[in-house]
Design a protein around this nucleic acid. Structure first.
Lengths: 115, 115
DNA sequence: TATAGTACTTTCCAAAAGGAAAGTGCTATT
DNA sequence: AATAGCACTTTCCTTTTGGAAAGTACTATA
């Protein structure tokens, strides 16, 4: 009997993809990054720009994104303390992914709709 | 007093990205697609090629991916019934996303490592 | 007849995620 | 003095996810 054909290794692709997913996976991370990217800086502005997100989810995701250096939290000690969130240079490296997802999302909607 | 500056809308980007995420979000979907993409066809081969995945997760994800037409489940009524999973033409549209994630994952590891 | 392989399913249970609603501490405005 | 806005946090509760382990139904092989 012939030797059993072994499975094909694909860790070269799977591992980096998993590394990327560990950072940007989830329902809200990319939406928040996009919102900050178009210029929303305040907590409530970001929240208002993303339908369905709760302040609890916002706070949690913002913290994680800050830890991953994808957004920056800036405290301004003016008369009223002001907190702003900003897009980092490092976040620029995500634009190819965001663009690819946007293009695919639009195509997929067509695909589903035209069926 | 000046009128309150309103938040900036970003639904044009957020909505399609969310549509895409709804389909490919999760820990295992892209790894499975990649594994089938390199040529693994059998349940156990796919499972063996992805470290850490359980048969329960496999079965669930394979079903969902089939529903989204990203993989095809083929039953061959030979002597022992044989089931194979195949990459669909439609799954080709995902390669830009997979490539972008792979590139970013590799860069991100460098970034974390060199710090 | 006994063992092994394939492709799952089922059960159990712990941990994580997710949402609604209310609360907090601060300041600015009326 | 009362109200409102900002940036959250806290509580409560339900749902989802995730893994370990065992089980099942079938067939092929020794």
């Amino acid at each position: 009997m012939a030797a059993k054909k072994p499975y094909l290794s694909c860790l070269d692709s799977v591992k980096p993809v998993r590394d990327a997913l560990d950072v940007i996976n989830g329902k809200w991370k990319l939406p928040i990054i996009i919102s900050v990217g178009v210029g929303n800086e305040r907590f409530t502005d970001i929240q208002d720009s993303i339908p369905g997100i709760t302040p609890k989810a916002m706070a949690k995701e913002l913290k994680e994104l800050e830890q991953h250096k994808l957004i920056q939290r800036i405290i301004t000690n003016d008369y009223p303390v002001k907190i702003t969130y900003k897009w980092t240079t490092y976040a620029n490296t995500l634009t190819p992914i965001i663009d690819a997802l946007k293009v695919w999302g639009l195509k997929h909607k067509q695909e589903v709709f035209n069926k």
